[in-house]
């Protein structure tokens, strides 16, 4: 589904008088099937924006429309992947994926089995979250969101806590899913390579107040090769943008 964000602003009120302007005048049109990555320093309002898109935060100015309809609240059609997996610790993998849906239902069972295949967790259906590695837990969380067949999948630094190998693997899993289902993806990251590897559009967010300062299209065919020249050229473009915005710092590259 398409996502349209019009003049969205958000102010947090801290204590008595203090106000934190987290977002200011965000305008964005995202087409059905786009894979948009948002990059920016921590504290610039990325999570705040995603929470608004998810319907989890409804105290904001401006308007958000999904598929041409105003957003009313959180729901399964706006899937959300948090930075931490947020699985239910008392449910095993397959029950976490099913969550409120009964595994005894043949249709649910089949979908769960298919998803276990997709995210490559066959053999771990009965494992509890505490028995999983970070990557496996995050794959379970992705399967849980996908089971609900979301129109838009919102991902808030989903692979930030993972090691480089696991991260690359999960990026590929995500691309496979996107190519198969053409779900609109909005992924927040602070890893420049990740933003180029995944997105067909990169949005650069700047701080205080948080706003989108640049949109960079990425017209490279998938799967992309991080070592090749066109990739590196886009990387340079993104770096120049970040530097000119005075944002670039060592911290961001390392993630």
């Amino acid at each position: 589904m398409s996502v349209s964000i019009r003049s969205v602003s958000k102010t947090f009120i801290k204590g008595r008088q203090e106000e934190v302007k987290a977002l200011e005048n965000i305008n964005l049109e995202i087409k059905q099937g786009d894979f948009v990555t948002i990059i920016g320093p921590s504290g610039c309002g990325k999570s705040t924006l995603l929470k608004i898109l998810a319907g989890l935060d409804r105290q904001y100015e401006g308007s958000v429309q999904i598929g041409g309809r105003p957003l009313h609240g959180p729901g399964i059609k706006q899937g959300f992947i948090f930075q931490e997996h947020r699985l239910f610790p008392w449910l095993n993998v397959e029950k976490n994926i099913a969550a409120d849906l009964p595994l005894s239902d043949r249709e649910v069972r089949k979908k769960v089995d298919d998803l276990l295949e997709t995210v490559r967790l066959k053999g771990f259906e009965k494992a509890y979250p505490s028995e999983l590695s970070g990557g496996m837990a995050q794959r379970t969380a992705i399967a849980r969101a996908l089971l609900r067949e979301p129109d838009v999948l919102l991902l808030d630094e989903p692979f930030g806590a993972l090691d480089a190998f696991t991260r690359t693997h999960l990026q590929d899993v995500l691309l496979t899913i996107w190519e198969k289902k053409r779900t609109t993806m909005i992924l927040v990251t602070h890893d420049i390579d990740e933003s180029i590897y995944l997105g067909n559009r990169i949005l650069i967010m700047t701080q205080r107040p948080g706003t989108i300062s640049r949109s960079i299209p990425v017209d490279l065919p998938y799967p992309r090769k991080k070592s090749e020249l066109p990739f590196q050229q886009i990387r340079q473009k993104v770096m120049i943008e970040l530097e000119s915005a005075g944002l670039f710092s060592e911290k961001m590259v390392k993630g």
Partner: peptide
């Protein structure tokens, strides 16, 4: 944080109680 998950997954009242 798990309440947020339950909201995103659209748990009904009963599921909110039994599952969370």
């Amino acid at each position: 944080k798990l309440f947020d998950v339950a909201r995103v997954l659209e748990f009904n009242k009963r599921k909110l109680f039994t599952k969370l």
